[in-house]
Design a protein around this nucleic acid. Structure first.
Lengths: 271, 271
DNA sequence: CCGGTTATGGTCTAACTGACCATAACCGGG
DNA sequence: CCCGGTTATGGTCAGTTAGACCATAACCGG
């Protein structure tokens, strides 16, 4: 998109880029992974103002004129997880953009901060080493954050409510949107396979639904649906050795297929 | 979100808002309506650089510190259509944010422009009077814009290809995403009812699917599904008078129900 | 009254879901 | 080496739904 249009060069030569008050553009990341059967999200503890001492979604500023928000998200993803996201091949998707003037207190210093939120997910991410600009980082089970009541907790002006963190900025809202997006997409896409390491069993895959939704379809019916959806999973010819304390028949192992959508979508009874 | 956090006041007093290079934040609107059985979108012809003489999605700058992108979208919607959107009650939804540095040529003058795209839809919008900052405005059938090949047309540096406009900026991309969003939502939400004026017939409602998708379910099966989805439509006890040149039985009239989702979703054969 | 047109309800079959069962395969322990 | 516990896997069966299609009713203008 770098081609000139007739008359644009003279226009640009006289253009004053300070004619509009400046915005700051940041990205925020909701990085999900499943650990011990629970949906967890990476949070970092802020070392600086604003919201010093609060936990927040990782993120940072978009480099002006040099990258898009998505490129910034990939860059931050690498900095926060220590992984090259392009080689990890995990899922990355824009959730939405948050622009309320008072969502960042720096509006009182004249800075209007807009943030583009992304959701990323990958299997078995390593425990993060402290990020470049974050004091601490860890994965929190999403259900422990009680996102629905964070607004009330916010008003207490305390960074914790009991053991659970009160998220900085509007990150509780962003995170609830990100989780809702993931939930919805499990129903009609093959996204669940992005949460498990290859090779995986169908029970592993079903546990993703259990973690994200709190319930999952009947195992036998789940298998039937997954196996008859072309390209959802591809069978290997190997079985996983069964752990000595588990018992049971050794399950067949699968890999991710190339299908993107489940049509018709998954439906099952949620309690 | 205006409460102070401990220590923030001293931080803000010393904060330099010019520490980061400035972005501009705009909104772009894809305003859809169905006219004569075709999905159409409102475009405006730009009167100024950049892209003077090109057709573009309506939009404008977010007022710094005084409004959110969504509020700016509602404001622009009023300016472009002459309607108070809060009273119209039409659907408005964020599609995504576009931040490629070179999506706006003003990057060459040092201005990085990020744009939040929204999709709006309403029935039977009046033909627009010329907007405040647009030379001309009209609804274009989306299929005439051949969005898939706009990229090639873009390189010709001409504002038209045949009779069809070549859209400014990355608006062809935005528009294709907006259309895809609408298409997808027709399947699992009751959004189609937002496209018809009340009261409407089930054939009217089916014509929305025909316009947006190019095909629609069998009429009898369509009726069965709509009527057994609780809250999709509510029947009145009146029938529409049949036009003198049409013939046929007078159809029963319906109004929008309060249901939001169609579960399980609509599916039908597309050619 | 008639042919054309639309609305509306119905039938029939194939496919799918949810619930559930049976068996096989593997474990460690008696 | 059999046994109960556990998991994997394939199957059954009834109820529901979608797709294709038909029949009839209701209205038009001629």
């Amino acid at each position: 998109m770098t081609e000139r249009r007739p008359g644009e060069d003279t226009f640009l030569a006289a253009y004053d880029p300070t004619a509009f008050p400046p915005f700051a553009l940041t990205v925020d990341l909701a990085i999900f992974t499943v650990r011990d059967g629970l949906l967890t999200v990476l949070l970092v503890e802020r070392g600086d103002h604003p919201f010093k001492g609060y936990w927040a979604l990782p993120g940072g500023h978009v480099a002006h004129g040099r990258e898009s928000a998505e490129q910034a998200a990939v860059r931050e993803l690498g900095e926060e997880t220590g992984l090259d996201w392009t080689t990890v091949g995990g899922h990355l998707e824009q959730v939405g953009t948050y622009t309320e003037p008072d969502r960042d207190p720096r509006i009182r210093a004249g800075l209007h901060v807009a943030s583009v939120a992304y959701v990323a997910l990958a299997p078995n991410l390593p425990l993060p080493t402290a990020g470049t600009d974050a004091a601490r980082a860890r994965f929190w089970p999403v259900e422990d954050l009680s996102l629905d009541t964070q607004r009330a907790a916010w008003l207490d002006r305390q960074p914790y409510r009991g053991d659970a963190p009160v998220l900085a900025y509007d990150h509780a809202l962003i995170l609830s949107h990100a989780r809702d997006r993931i939930r919805a997409k499990l129903e009609y896409t093959t996204l669940a396979a992005q949460f498990v390491t290859e090779p995986f069993t169908l029970a592993d895959l079903r546990r993703v639904y259990q973690a994200v939704w709190g319930s999952a379809p009947d195992l036998a019916n789940f298998r039937r649906k997954v196996l008859k959806t072309p390209g959802f999973v591809v069978a290997t010819n190997e079985h996983r050795a069964v752990a000595s304390d588990r018992g049971g028949a050794p399950p067949l192992l699968y890999r991710r297929g190339d299908a993107q959508r489940i049509d018709p979508p998954f439906t099952w009874e949620r309690e």
